[in-house]
């Protein structure tokens, strides 16, 4: 081979080699720079960034439960709050000091306090009844095999919401079943509960009537103690006045004035409704929670205070009206 061809060959190969090496380098570098957009992003941002102008509430403080996984919250009127973190129980007094209370038998899914301050702890398939000082009074185990207790409310009678059977039991304080409420009944025009997730919250109002959430239908339902449906309201919507997603609201609480505070997952929102379903106020909007927070249990305290259990940040957050910082 003569030198001339050889030199051309060399040049050609060197150029080729550098092109290939350049390609390898470029390919590595490009990956390093990262591609920054997801063409298939599921974007809730426009809804999360809802208008905060008409939010009259602000967060005024929080009760720190670092290291605990909060599972349930209820108000103990006049004495503060009772908080469950798995099978650990805590009391929070009126000036927000935490003290450890009795240990529960198993993880507490819901809890309630009756007017005599007896405490009812809802486990998955049973209810523990305790006196105010923490001694055990009774354990109710008469629930069916597929029961999943998700809500409890205590007044003169005790109401237990069973998500597994989609029904609310009215029981007396001795644990005797008195009635089943909310089963599908075309005659009484009761649509029946749709419980797609694990949330099935109930509360008793001052007049002894029962409020229950029907998350699959995005409604709050108002029942008489006999199980007649008095009223129901709520509609699905991403907008502020409705309930978003597939299983909302998740929790609710009744304020001393008779209003209803609701919490939602997906778009984490806390809102106050009048008893006939008119949106009164927004308490907290999605931007104030970690994305994906679930289990925002609620309690209404005195002076319009709203306690929000935030399991993601392991704290009970306190919201008050009108105190903007």
């Amino acid at each position: 081979m003569n030198d001339h061809i050889s030199r051309r060959m060399t040049t050609f190969i060197l150029i080729t080699a550098s092109v290939i090496l350049g390609f390898y380098g470029f390919s590595l570098l490009r990956e390093r720079a990262g591609r920054n957009t997801n063409p298939y992003a599921y974007d809730l941002e426009p809804f999360r960034r809802s208008d905060s102008a008409n939010v009259l509430y602000s967060e005024t403080g929080f009760i720190d439960f670092s290291g605990q996984v909060l599972t349930a919250l209820c108000a103990d009127p006049g004495h503060g709050l009772i908080v469950a973190a798995g099978s650990k129980m805590f009391r929070v007094d009126t000036i927000n000091r935490i003290s450890e209370w009795i240990p529960a038998d198993e993880p507490v899914r819901c809890l309630a306090v009756d007017p005599e301050r007896r405490v009812y702890l809802g486990y998955e398939k049973s209810v523990g009844v305790y006196s105010p000082d923490g001694s055990r009074l009774d354990t109710w185990q008469q629930f069916s095999e597929n029961a999943i207790l998700a809500g409890i409310a205590a007044g003169r009678d005790v109401y237990v919401a069973d998500a597994g059977n989609r029904v609310i039991y009215r029981m007396n304080r001795e644990g005797r079943m008195l009635a089943s409420i909310g089963e599908k009944d075309p005659v009484k025009k009761i649509p029946g509960f749709v419980i797609p997730g694990s949330c099935f919250d109930i509360q008793i109002s001052a007049d002894g009537s029962l409020w229950a959430v029907n998350p699959g239908r995005h409604k709050l339902e108002h029942y008489s103690p006999d199980g007649d449906l008095i009223a129901s309201w709520g509609h699905p919507s991403m907008r502020l006045e409705g309930f978003s997603g597939c299983c909302n609201p998740t929790y609710f609480a009744l304020t001393p004035e008779g209003n209803i505070v609701t919490s939602e997952k997906g778009l984490e929102r806390i809102k106050v409704y009048s008893p006939d379903g008119e949106l009164r106020d927004a308490v907290a909007l999605p931007g104030q929670f970690d994305e994906g927070t679930v289990g925002l249990d609620l309690a209404a305290g005195p002076e319009g205070r709203i306690f929000v259990m935030d399991p993601s940040r392991a704290r009970i957050r306190i919201f008050e009206k009108g105190e903007r910082e």
Partner: peptide
């Protein structure tokens, strides 16, 4: 694991007008 909901977050757009 499915709730068989009518309003499904995985099926409908977040701002869907009708289900």
């Amino acid at each position: 694991v499915c709730g068989y909901c009518e309003l499904c977050g995985g099926y409908s757009k977040p701002d869907a007008h009708r289900l």
